[in-house]
Design a protein around this nucleic acid. Sequence first.
DNA 1: CAGCATCCTCAAAGATACTG
DNA 2: CAGTATCTTTGAGGATGCTG
Lengths: 134, 134
Amino acid sequence: MPTKTAAQARQQAKDQYDAYLATCPSRLLLDRISNKWVTLIITALRGGPLRYSQLRTTIAGVSEKMLTQTLRSLERDGLISRTVTPSVPVRVDYALTPLGVSILEPITIMKEWAEQHMPAVTAARQAHDVREAS
Amino acid sequence: MPTKTAAQARQQAKDQYDAYLATCPSRLLLDRISNKWVTLIITALRGGPLRYSQLRTTIAGVSEKMLTQTLRSLERDGLISRTVTPSVPVRVDYALTPLGVSILEPITIMKEWAEQHMPAVTAARQAHDVREAS
DNA sequence: CAGCATCCTCAAAGATACTG
DNA sequence: CAGTATCTTTGAGGATGCTG
């Protein structure tokens, strides 16, 4: 009788790997920016602070729920700041923090890679699909 | 009577924006690499070709379904190649294509940003949560 | 060895309506 | 203006068993 079954061993290996991934900085970053709205909000704020309603119209596809939710999480992570001006009606401005500005760089690099190489990816995809259909 | 209701106008704006996002190269790239397994597979192949079973054990947390699914999509996009050696039993090797190698660069840049700044993000998060709890 | 087929779950995103 | 609250949907991903 083995001390543990194959299934148990596999589960343990998985748990360890999951724990490793949970602390991996790169994974944490990916979890952050892989979100559809995160990069849109950050690049929207590139030119300077925007109000809630401006963000909503700039990023036309976003629901209020997702916008608020994403803004809150970005604020929590120190990437954007939220400034309330208690006038009537109230005014709320969102802006990039220095940390938020610094993340523009990797995002820009990714954008450049995308613009250079995505056509090749799309072409490969189409070629592959054509071959598949034959 | 307006030619279109506010809801219709909003829907139209959203559709247009969705269409724009659907062709945006940066979004396409993000959709590609935001996947949990994609970056893990690509970085696993950094050192040279690996067999299916090697990938499965290297990336301990992956199920066969997700591994196969991700490999297929990466092959389709021309980022990795799949080489079958018809021995008994069969042997299948996966390797990065030149396109696949080129994507290592933005991934590495992201990784570097992550290693430099994720501690600050984590700290901001904790500070924020402490403030919240008070 | 290297998969494919099937069923299932659960969390994230969307739609809708209301409020300080 | 700048949100909150609630319900519903959808699909990525996991578990399991089978095959050339």
